[in-house]
Structure formats: C-alpha cells, structure tokens
Design a protein around this nucleic acid. Structure first.
Lengths: 261, 261
DNA sequence: TAGTGGTCTAGACCACAAT
DNA sequence: TTGTGGTCTAGACCACTAA
C-alpha cells in the first residue's frame, strides 16, 4: 500500500520509531526531560536529520506510553532551544543547520575551557574597598559601602587575553585567591549557593591605554573589546559588577540569537 | 489578628485580586496570552511591585475561571521573559529590578528608532555579484553564485554611526533602494514573507583603516566595533550574511541575558 | 477532506519549604 | 503539617495546511 510519497514520510518516522527511548518512571528526572534529552541526542548524532519530520504528537505519545501534554512539553523545550520547528498542519521538523549553543551567562573561564584553550588566571588584586559611585549604583549598596574588588589577568597558551575587574558586595562571598585561580568566579558563586538569574551587558570597543597595552602585550592604541556587566541572583539582587577588557586580536563574543515568535 | 508580616502578604495578594483581568473567550488571542499580557502590564505599571507574591496558581485559576494549566502557561511565559520567579513551596514573585528587554534579533535600525535616535540610511551600493568564498559558505550557495550585496551608511543626528554590508541570496528578495532607506532590511524581509528564526553573531573590535575612518568621520586607527552575522529562516536556510562596523565612540551592544534553569 | 499542531479542561499525586 | 509549585493524565475542540 505504501506509495512513494508515503515512503519518504515513513523513513523519517521510522528513524524515530527505531530509537529506543528509555523512559524511567522511577527516576527523579521528569519524563518530559528524559524524552527531550534523548531527542536532543538523536538530533545531535544525526539519527534525526535536518528536515526530518518527527511524526505527530498523538502517535508519539501513544507509542511512548505518555500523555500528549508531556510529549508536547518535551518537544517545546527543544523548540525553545532552536532545534525543532513546529508548523500547524504540517508537523514538527528538525531545523537545518548550524544551531549551536545560545548566548548564555557563562564566564570567560568556561568559554575558554570548553573551547579547549586551557585558560590560566592570575589574581592581581583581591581586597575590600569602599564603593565608588558607579559601583555603588550598580550593586545597590550605599556609596562608600564595603565591596570586594577583584582584578584578574587571564591567559591562554601563556598569552594574556583579558583583564577582568569585578566588584561584589563584600559580605556575599569569601573569595579565596587560590581557588579563584583554579575555578573561575561564577563557579565559586554557584557553589556558595548563589543562583544567577540574569545579567545586563554592554559590549563596546576602545583604544588601549599605555598601561593596558603593556599588561596585555599589545601596542598602545590597539583596539580592545570592552564588556560591562551587572549580574543578578534570582531575587533580583545585584551580586556582581564587572568591567572587562579583551584583546580584540585574540577574542570575540560569539553567540546565537533566537527570534521570539 | 493581622500582624505586620501577614499584612505585607495580604497587600500583595489583594493588589492582584483587585485587578480586573478581562478575559475574552471569543477573542482569537489565546486565554493564556491574554492573561500574560495583563500580568505583564500590571508589573510594568507597578501595580505588582517587585517582590510581591502572585498568590497561588490554584486560587488564581478558580478566580479567573480558568484551568490551572492555562494559568501556569501564562505565568511560565513571564518566567521565560525574566519578569517572574517561581519557588517551590514559596510562591511566584515579581523579580526585583532592572529587567529590561532581552537581546533580540533586532536590526540596528529598530534599535536606534526605539531609542529615539532618528536614524537615516544611505544605500551606497545595491547590486548582484558572484559570491566569494566566505559569502558562499555562509549563505550556502555555490561559489560564484548570484548574491545581492548591499552597502549602507547609517547616520543619527547627521553623524555617521555604522557601515553595514549585507549579502543575500539574489533570488530571495527584491531590494528597492528607496524602501531600504526608509524601512530597514529586516522589515522588508518580514513583509516579503521571510520569517527569521535564528542568527549567529560574532562581535569583535579592530582599528579603522584610512578608508573606513574617512567614511565614518573617525581618525585612522580609531577603535571600531565589528559584527558578523548569519541569519536563518525557520527552515534553517541562510537568508542573510552581514559584516558590519560601528563607531565605538557612538555605539555599543546592550543586552540582557537570562540563565536557563 | 484528512492530518497536524494549538488550546483548554478537570482532575490527580508528588516534592519541597516554611511553620 | 500546611501550602506551594512541579509533574502527569485522558480526554476535548479548534485552526491551519496540504492534497
């Protein structure tokens, strides 16, 4: 009975059908998340090729022994990640292409480490000082209140890449310089129970001063990438304010945007 | 019996209770979206102040005559926008602070327009050329295939701000220079039925060449902000590739990040 | 016309946090 | 212990797309 048109569809569907989705109802991991992870892995490994139809949600739910809302929740999470596209009356397709990780609130340390760049950090300064005007405003502390200022020099392959200056409300966290050099600031904050929620960033450029140039192995006047960021925890409290500069010859910001429907 | 602590809660809850959520079941706008819009407006106008609890979902659903999943969907959309935070066992709160618009796939034209900067555009070049290597790779066309190249100079208050170079697959769109000068490229694409889905961007910096400097009213060697972008439609097909440069003295990228839970 | 995703309902039980 | 959000079910009807 299968005609050619049907066979094309069947191929896409059976690629999905042959996958052994192992759902563990005893696991603390939600079912929709288990399914989403396995779908993502299938896309990642090319089992589900770009353009493939996923097969309709109702059948999928029946086949997996799940309810349709649960299956939808799994699919929706991948749509939000940009891996799938849904079209009413058509179906759910794997997005063609080049979808990578979106822009996340990651630290430079994580960025470089995942890129296999073996970053090292030198803590140049780590002390408590009274907050100046812009710092006080960004962190929501009174002017002159105590803040920790942190200057770090980051290198990859022995070459300096960035000068990082961060301010934190002093009572927030105990900043051990040795741990900072091996771990990165955001990881230390996370393991101290601070859950980052959002951040505002401004990225710009300017010429290097003589002092900056000498620290970064650049010529005076060389183009630098600048980043200013205020990060908030999930109560909306500012927990970090940073002004960073990067060697434009060695570093760029690379990220993906998704259009909200 | 109401102690001070209780009163704070009550106030927050009644602020929500006194809101007249007008849900129109005849409207083509989904109920969850109507609710989300009205909640967002209440937050925007300060009716729901930062830190206020929203009251539990079940009661809210009953009061509005909706099912709990529908109410949850509305709340979830605002959580995704970063306006609300949910805590199990605690409740749903309005996020403190400074939450603004997130980074979107907006055009510079839109950015400047919404900032009230009255941008003007001069189309310097608009022609069909064979695709060079990097352009062909980015747009997924054969090398030497026809692409439209578009050079534009953008000014605000009469001062040059950016040089925009864009490449598009030639058959995709009819690019009328006059309309481009009054409208912006992304709007033209949208009204041509192209729905943007995602983009990859790289932001960096470098020194201005003599030619760039003269076009942008800068000194040779001045720091420029650079942006390279490939945009995709919802089928994953590349629809635009751009290499832009901005005067760092007049322009920065400003955006908000949300941490995925 | 048939098939798809989009929306919505009315329940249920569980995990976690505060009291 | 109580109240909250987190998850899940088993249906229903609708709007849109393509043949």
């Amino acid at each position: 009975m299968a005609k050619t048109g049907d066979r094309a569809r069947t191929t896409a569907a059976s690629a999905l059908g042959s996958l052994d989705f192992a759902l563990d109802r005893g696991s603390p991991v939600p079912l929709y998340h288990q399914l989403a992870q396995q779908l993502e892995a299938a896309i990642e490994h090319g089992v589900l090729a770009p353009g493939n139809l996923l097969g309709n949600e109702v059948d999928l739910a029946v086949r997996l022994g799940l309810s349709r809302p649960t299956v939808r929740q799994a699919i929706q999470s991948l749509v939000d990640k940009g891996l799938l596209v849904r079209r009413r009356g058509v179906g759910t397709q794997v997005v063609h292409s080049q979808v990578r990780r979106p822009l996340e609130l990651s630290s430079l340390y994580d960025d470089l480490e995942t890129a296999g760049q073996a970053p090292t950090t030198e803590v140049v300064r780590n002390e408590v000082v009274p907050a100046a005007g812009d710092v006080a405003a960004a962190l929501g502390v009174p002017e002159g209140g105590e803040v920790t200022v942190l200057d770090r020099l980051r290198r990859t392959h022995g070459r300096p890449v960035a000068l990082l200056r961060n301010y934190l409300p002093a009572p927030l966290l105990d900043l051990d310089s040795a741990r900072l050099e091996s771990t990165g600031l955001y990881r230390m904050m996370r393991s101290a129970g601070i859950t980052l929620h959002s951040a505002r960033q401004t990225v710009g450029a300017r010429a290097a001063t003589a002092r900056e140039a000498s620290r970064l192995d650049e010529e005076e006047g060389a183009a630098l990438l600048t980043m200013r960021r205020t990060a908030y925890d999930d109560t909306g409290r500012p927990v970090e304010y940073g002004t960073h500069i990067y060697r434009a010859s060695l570093y760029t910001f690379d990220f993906q945007l998704l259009v909200r429907p």
